[in-house]
Design a protein around this nucleic acid. Sequence first.
DNA 1: TTAGTCTTGTCCTTTAAAGGTCAAATATAG
DNA 2: CTATATTTGACCTTTAAAGGACAAGACTAA
Lengths: 93, 93
Amino acid sequence: MLGEKLRELREAKGLVQRQVAADLQVDTAYISKMEHNEKPVSRNHLKKLSKLYSVAENDLLPIWLADKVLQLVENEKFSVEALEMALNKVKQK
Amino acid sequence: MLGEKLRELREAKGLVQRQVAADLQVDTAYISKMEHNEKPVSRNHLKKLSKLYSVAENDLLPIWLADKVLQLVENEKFSVEALEMALNKVKQK
DNA sequence: TTAGTCTTGTCCTTTAAAGGTCAAATATAG
DNA sequence: CTATATTTGACCTTTAAAGGACAAGACTAA
């Protein structure tokens, strides 16, 4: 989810991975992997990316977190039940 | 959540931590911490505990996973949004 | 008061994930 | 064809979490 989004944003800005990589000070392979969801995106990188792509960090954060959640529950038999329980807990607070 | 549940189950069985600890081959401090949510419960331990307490592992698994999810999203601003997104994704599959 | 239970803090080791790089292979545009 | 962009896999180092022991203290109940 986040990877696809990041790719869209980058292309919308007309940037190549090399430019993004330079900004984050990593190599292009790393960017590629982020966009393929093969490497997690750190919060710091997320912040820089949101700046670079001119979107509010708050637009990206829910997706970013949802990705993490999905990764945690993937392949779990009771993912739905667990997410529903978690959601209830979080909401009631 | 899980910790409290484990404590209830243990007490319902009339077991003391020492006995549970022996079964899992850890010390009582470890059990105490599990019941206080200060140490994560491994899947293996969860399985053993469910046997020991005579409950279906499937009764415990959703709670166990929900706990992990909650820990992941705690202190996050967009926990609700993220959980809702994750839930949708998981459901549609 | 003593025995048994439980709790808490500190410490340690091992495992796994994060966070990368590099080189080579692939695709794509000109 | 060649240059540029991207992808992929293998590898590496660093950081953080898991998993756990131990000792000391607190809390009962007898």
